[in-house]
């Protein structure tokens, strides 16, 4: 119906109104719409307030992606790209969702300077390296990184396997099931798997995860990313970096949809 036909003189019967979109609205309908809009506005405000107020904190991760810095130290690729400085051991990653293995290969086990951006959380720092920013510094005292085992027998851990870069501040929150696709993509791209243990103190450094002897998470473990898991692991360290060494067959989901404990047997893949 065109607007020219919208005069609607016969639709003004106050005792028997009918709403027709192209005609003037009856008073009853106008009042009903106003009441509905007020209710909707109240409901939307309530939902927004309630949902924001009850969102869990994403933690205190920091990504200084506008503050380029220079670091010096001993660069190694084993067990994961790291820069060992006299003070600490810093994980090194690339831009985006990529590990830095390829960029570091050429300079591995040498004293270098490199430029990048700092990510940090829970006392753990990471460098997001600027491409082609490594400069060899020649001969210098070289600390040989060694993996020092702290446990003989594995002990139980409960928490979430997370991708280190997002969790340290690149994404906030960088954990939880909604973040799963990103976490899996990051781990497939070679970013370091770390372990956020339940009830860990805020000052406790996040450990690097070595699964089945590799810092590259096996594909069959990806189903456990971004969920609470239980696992048996042995503690170790490289420099100041804590490490958890885990056999993937010990990983199991800590709870199901309703929060009940549930054990899932991992089928080891052929590869």
């Amino acid at each position: 119906m065109t607007d020219s036909q919208a005069s609607g003189p016969n639709n003004t019967n106050r005792s028997d109104p009918l709403y027709v979109g192209y005609m003037p609205a009856p008073d009853e309908h106008r009042r009903a719409v106003k009441r509905t809009l007020i209710l909707l506005a109240a409901w939307l405000s309530f939902c927004a307030f309630t949902l924001v107020l009850t969102m869990p904190s994403p933690g205190e991760g920091v990504w200084e992606n506008s503050n380029e810095r220079v670091w010096e130290g001993f660069l190694t690729n084993d067990p994961y790209p790291m820069l060992l400085t006299p003070e600490e051991t810093l994980l090194v990653v690339s831009m985006g969702k990529h590990g830095a293995h390829d960029q570091i290969d050429e300079f591995a086990n040498s004293h270098v300077s490199l430029r990048g951006y700092e990510l940090r959380r829970q006392g753990r720092r990471m460098i997001e390296m600027v491409p082609d920013s490594i400069t060899p510094l020649g001969e210098a005292p070289s600390p040989q990184p060694t993996l020092s085992m702290l446990d003989i027998e594995p002990i139980d851990f409960t928490g979430e396997i997370i991708d280190g870069k997002c969790y340290l501040g690149a994404m906030k929150p960088g954990n939880g099931f909604a973040h799963r696709a990103c976490a899996v993509l990051c781990l497939r791209g070679g970013l370091p798997a770390m372990f956020a243990e339940d009830d860990a103190s805020p000052d406790e450094p996040l450990p690097l995860l070595i699964v089945d002897g590799s810092t590259q998470v096996p594909e069959h473990v990806m189903q456990y990313i971004a969920t609470r898991v239980q696992m048996k692991a042995r503690r170790a360290s490289v420099g100041t970096l804590p490490v958890l060494i885990v056999d993937s067959s010990t990983i199991e989901r800590a709870n199901d949809f309703f929060g009940n404990p549930k054990t899932i047997v991992i089928e080891q893949s052929e590869d």
Binding site: G96, K97, H98, A181, L185, C186, R188, G189
Partner: peptide
């Protein structure tokens, strides 16, 4: 954001 910047 979740699917970008990666290897896939």
């Amino acid at each position: 954001f979740y699917g970008g910047f990666g290897v896939q």
